[in-house]
Design a protein around this nucleic acid. Sequence first.
DNA 1: AATCGACTAAAAAACGAAATTAGTCGGTAA
DNA 2: TTACCGACTAATTTCGTTTTTTAGTCGATT
Lengths: 196, 196
Amino acid sequence: MQAISKEEKAKEEILLQAQKLFQQFGLKKTTMDDLASACSKAKSTLYHYFKSKHEVFDAVIDLEMTSLQAIIQSKVAEVDTISEKLTIYIITFHAEVTKMANLYRIIQNELAHEAFTHKQFRRMFSFEQAYISKLLQEGIDKNEIKEIDSDEIDWFAEMLIAAFFGVVQHSIESDNGLDHEKLTKTANRLIPRFIT
Amino acid sequence: MQAISKEEKAKEEILLQAQKLFQQFGLKKTTMDDLASACSKAKSTLYHYFKSKHEVFDAVIDLEMTSLQAIIQSKVAEVDTISEKLTIYIITFHAEVTKMANLYRIIQNELAHEAFTHKQFRRMFSFEQAYISKLLQEGIDKNEIKEIDSDEIDWFAEMLIAAFFGVVQHSIESDNGLDHEKLTKTANRLIPRFIT
DNA sequence: AATCGACTAAAAAACGAAATTAGTCGGTAA
DNA sequence: TTACCGACTAATTTCGTTTTTTAGTCGATT
């Protein structure tokens, strides 16, 4: 049983403050000095824990993604069939991404063309794709899904995720359009039809 | 029977040259002087036909969108059932947008945050949404689709288009990923399931 | 109506100086 | 060692200014 080390504790605190600052001011407007004083530490101390500002930001995004994924997985675990799981997946995904829309906007607005944003996004995409692949594979094993060859699963999942993301993105960008209720209704009605 | 007026002829020529230049150099790097000399006209003459550079660009986009739509509609008209029509829709849409990917990249890269790009995009989105709504309505009238209320059609179409766009966008951005063949395969298999 | 050349006003590019800021280093305390 | 700091530097960003480019106008000509 390993207690949380002093180092972990400090890192956590730094990331927590960084999360707050990034959410409020964005990446560019948040300086390492700001972060240092928010943590009541000298700036140079931060470099004891992270080797660059970039790494801090990456770690914050990681944190966000991990918590998103944890929420999704716990919700998905509550139901049994693939059909339900996929439905819950998109509904939860939509709800949570909407909640963290401010962070999403930072990424969209001030980082749209940065190479590392694309990297982060692809990482997320691949991750979600792998997760959906896993769900589909389980569906095949339990005989709930037919008509999909095992070697087609990956790009089938790829397409599903791309479609999901398209819907979620549209929903965030057009504030008047699709709301959560409509999404839920449609997801509940459509997704079961895929699964046969 | 109205012959093409001198004015129309000149406008056409200007737009043709503008189309070439925008494709090659993007919007910012193409100056009105460039366009003028490409048309072998004085710059001030261009303002006889278009009241701003903006208007020229808008007209080019319009041209592009109109031709895209014409291609889609002609393909869609070749088949009979809604299911086939929707399938052909996304396949054709994907193929054509991939072809004009350079223009798409201009918009993504140098105009991502410009307000009027969003306007153009929304215009396109609404247009396509209306078109899909129309197709769905026909499907209901011909009794090929059940289980959709008429008043739900609009946001059902909205979601479909958002999903379609998500897939196409993903396909363009990740050059290694989904190819046309996979898309066709999946579209052929999935879309018919919606329609019942 | 269509065209042009000359003009203007506004925006963008160029540039150097000043100020910020990311990241380093040597040292200190525990 | 590990966690920390203050002082430093090198790299960026910002800012103010000048110059250049470019969108758009105007009056004249055919």
